[in-house]
Nucleic acid binder design. Structure first.
Lengths: 108, 108
DNA sequence: GAATATTTTTACGATATTTCGGAAAAATAG
DNA sequence: CTATTTTTCCGAAATATCGTAAAAATATTC
């Protein structure tokens, strides 16, 4: 099981957090608001695609119901495997960044 | 300031943790013990090199004093910039993985 | 129903970066 | 000279990221 890259981790986490409202635009916006990093669509969709191919995300076609027109959205949902990948990422961070580490680093 | 990749982060943290004892072999071993991931030397030294080029690590030639012979070690030391990079990584992780997130994820 | 406005996704080649392997070379002590 | 330790080498293959214009899909207005 390969590690998630940082961007994969961010997008996957965003999908999970956004629950039923995760589609391209909101995902990009969420990450941007939380971290201050704004990604081009190329990066975003290519990462979402890869996460879907790996089985960490599933995609569903949204009902067309925007108020002023516009293309259908594709909603993303995290899968069980996706949760597993997030858990693994969390665990790895915990191994590396135990609380002693964090405290020591903030004291310098 | 670009983000650290996961492997860069691991090796940089390892150097910091190992203090005066950080050289190729111990760094590799430390990461392996902490995370269960064993990296080939190609990956290790190429990452250390990159970290040094970025100014996050400095290298010093070790006194030749191994007990049974062997090549000189090159010790790595984290720089001020390196500390900064670790801090940034820590902060980013905090933004993404706040405690609510961690709790929610462990409850599933 | 045609034209327009709006929203969202797709496309895709170019670049840059990362990771791998592991044998070979270098440096040193006995 | 031999044993030991550590680093270097290096090209190949896999991946990641970028940029952004264009296309697709839908609602609204006339």
């Amino acid at each position: 099981m390969k590690d998630l890259t940082l961007t994969e981790e961010m997008f996957l986490l965003a999908v999970w957090k956004l629950k039923e409202e995760a589609y391209g635009v909101t995902i990009r916006q969420y990450v941007s608001e939380e971290t201050g990093r704004t990604y081009p669509y190329g990066t975003l969709y290519s990462a979402l695609d890869k996460l879907a191919r790996k089985g960490f995300l599933a995609r569903s076609t949204g009902d067309p119901s925007p108020e002023r027109g516009g293309r259908r959205k594709y909603y993303y949902h995290i899968t069980g495997q996706g949760i597993g990948a997030l858990r693994a990422a969390m665990e790895l961070k915990r191994l590396l960044w135990d609380s002693d580490t964090e405290i020591a680093l903030s004291k310098i």
